[in-house]
Simulated assay, not measured.
Amino acid sequence: MVQVAVVTFDGFNELDSFIASALINRCRKDGLEAFITTPTPRVTSMNGVEVAGQRPIGFVTEADVVLIGSGVRTRDVVADAPLLARLPLDPARQLIGSQCSGALVLAHLGLLGAMPACTDLTSRPFVEARGVTVLDAPFHAEGNIATAGGCLASQYLATWVVITRTLGEDAARAVLDYVAPVGENRETADRALRAVSAMGAVGAVPAVGAVPAASAARA
């Protein structure tokens, strides 16, 4: 089973954490599973939605994939050195992605290096202040690291996880086709796959806890 930690802090954006997690979990029967991973037993979203974490923050050391979600308190997160120390991420063995202000976390962890990143408009100046070039694009990936900008770009991040060294393009297309607005199925899937394939992820050689491609789980 390829395990995905969707790291979710207090003040989180529901769209970022829940869309990525829900899309990835449609592949659960094929060996890919996501868990809302939190630093405290319960966290509260930017809109007051309280959720229980499915895994504690220490799960990031076990996960094959780690996605850092965004929220209105990300600047508090990166100012909390003990909390950042609980995120010992390793791009040599893990796929690591960020959503919107999650790019600021990756920057503070020193994971972006000279790599440009995608983030949201509010977070952009703070990410740039870390010396990172911010792209006017929804998704960018280099090697085992990816960033997405804009809440609905979480579908691109989930697509990247599904097709990059895990289940493959057919599984990603099946998931996207199912969740797309009726009548826009192919358009939605094609758009997401174009964004990810532009980064060279489609057809990549399996490397991270690879499982065989199969039909995506549907519910």
Rank of each mutant, 00 (worst) to 15 (best):
M1A: 12
Q3N: 11
V4M: 08
A5D: 02
V6P: 03
F9A: 04
D10K: 05
N13R: 09
N13M: 09
N13T: 15
E14Q: 14
L15K: 00
L15I: 14
I19G: 01
A20I: 02
S21T: 14
A22V: 09
L23W: 05
N25I: 07
D30Y: 03
G31R: 11
G31P: 07
L32I: 02
A34S: 10
A34T: 04
T37P: 08
T37F: 10
T37H: 03
T44N: 10
M46G: 13
G48L: 12
G48W: 09
V49G: 01
V49R: 14
E50K: 14
A52W: 01
G53M: 09
R55H: 10
R55T: 01
T61N: 03
T61H: 03
E62P: 09
A63Q: 01
D64A: 14
V65P: 00
L67K: 05
I68D: 02
S70R: 03
S70I: 00
G71Y: 07
V72L: 15
R73K: 15
A79F: 08
D80A: 12
D80H: 12
L83T: 05
L83G: 01
A85W: 05
R86H: 04
L87H: 01
L87D: 03
L89I: 12
P91W: 04
A92N: 13
A92D: 15
L95E: 05
S98F: 07
S98I: 03
C100I: 02
S101L: 11
A103M: 09
L104R: 02
V105R: 09
L106D: 10
H108K: 15
H108P: 02
L111C: 02
L112M: 01
G113M: 13
P116S: 01
P116A: 08
T119M: 12
T119L: 11
T119W: 08
D120R: 07
T122L: 11
R124C: 05
E128M: 03
E128L: 07
A129D: 15
R130P: 00
R130T: 14
G131H: 09
V132F: 10
D136G: 04
P138R: 15
A141D: 04
G143I: 06
N144H: 14
N144F: 08
N144A: 15
I145E: 06
T147A: 12
T147W: 14
G149L: 11
C151K: 12
L152C: 13
S154P: 01
Y156F: 14
Y156N: 06
L157P: 00
T159G: 02
T159W: 02
V161I: 03
V162Q: 00
T164L: 12
T166I: 09
L167P: 04
G168K: 04
G168W: 05
E169H: 08
A171D: 04
V175M: 10
V175I: 13
Y178W: 14
V179Y: 11
A180E: 06
N185Q: 15
R186W: 02
R186F: 02
T188L: 07
D190Q: 14
D190C: 10
D190R: 08
R191H: 07
A195Y: 11
A195L: 08
S197T: 15
S197W: 04
A198Y: 03
A198I: 01
G200A: 05
A201F: 06
V205Y: 00
G209R: 08
A210M: 06
V211Y: 01
A214M: 11
S215F: 10
A216W: 13
R218E: 13
